[in-house]
Design a protein around this nucleic acid. Structure first.
Lengths: 171, 171
DNA sequence: CCGGTCATGTAATCTGTTACATGATTAC
DNA sequence: GTAATCATGTAACAGATTACATGACCGG
């Protein structure tokens, strides 16, 4: 199962939704952390329906309007199964930025410093944003969803620590 | 430019290589941090050649053997330009595991605990591996390539900190 | 009635992985 | 001579993004 399918199925675990609403959900409830676009959502919903993991119904009141998708019992079982499997998969430290860092020595030391300072500012903005978001979300989010945000904050702080150290060392 | 192209070009910045050698380079010099497979390497080399970013020459001694690729001056310029551009791009906290965490509350608390403990063990193994690797690489790697490894270690430690906290809280 | 946003969808494209296919060279 | 590994490449597929296309509905 693709990540996009798992993501959609996971959101539908909460309540039935239509495609447009799903997009908004990602934008407002998992901002910064996850995104998905219409070019994925509709094809994914179609496939999930074909596999019997979601059921679709057109709102009776709106004959040409929204199509609401509801996760089926089989969908819930499958979701839990796949989620567990994926989490078990190997841990990795593989991200784009790591690759970029491997090549950083090919740039000039002034350039490097500028780039790292820019990164630092970006991370500071992100930290401020997450901290604020975290405060307001603390009470209303389910336990582990909040702890996912906490985790994000911790990693951003670590990134800042590393950036400060590296910028300092680059003087 | 795709990540795979940047990765190949970045490795060729060090010295001319043939396809098979490139694969080994990633496996031995950036283990855990980055990987690339033949199905990408050869098509990427072909494209880079067409774009004039690398030059290919067949080893004279081996008429049917290795094709050595060397980065061109234009390739070097382009590599530095693209690397800077990519680093400037927005900071993100988007990874598969984050998405999975958002859905963790749909699993049972025993299952969650088991999964987190498994993750912890995986991260401990990874930390041990990186620490050992880091020790031996410290002297021989260019400055920022080493600091990329340090960064990896810091993030793995943060992950462990978060896992311990979360496992503790889940009791 | 007109602009925004709600709502659904497809087509083209890009990137990357897996699997397959082939053959040379080296070590035993 | 035969197994391992060196070496290059293609084809099929999977996953996701971007751009395009369409039209309903609502507020001013």
């Amino acid at each position: 199962m693709s990540l996009a399918k798992l993501a959609v199925l996971g959101v539908l675990m909460e309540k039935p939704m239509h495609g447009y609403e799903l997009k908004q959900y990602f934008e407002t409830r998992m901002p910064v952390f996850w995104m998905i676009n219409y070019g994925s959502i509709y094809p994914v919903l179609k496939k999930l329906k074909e596999e019997g993991l979601v059921a679709a119904r057109r709102e009776v009141s709106e004959p040409r309007g929204k199509i609401v998708y509801e996760i089926t019992e089989e969908g819930r079982r499958e979701f839990r199964k796949i989620l567990k499997e994926r989490i078990k998969k190997e841990v990795h430290v593989r991200d784009e930025f790591t690759l970029h860092l491997f090549f950083l020595d090919y740039l000039g030391s002034e350039e490097i410093k500028d780039l790292l300072i820019q990164k630092k500012q970006g991370n500071e903005r992100l930290l401020a944003h997450l901290t604020e978001k975290g405060e307001t979300l603390k009470k209303i989010l389910p336990r582990h969803r909040f702890s996912a945000i906490e985790r994000g904050i911790m990693h951003v702080k670590t990134e800042l620590e590393w950036l400060n150290k590296t910028i300092g060392g680059a003087v």
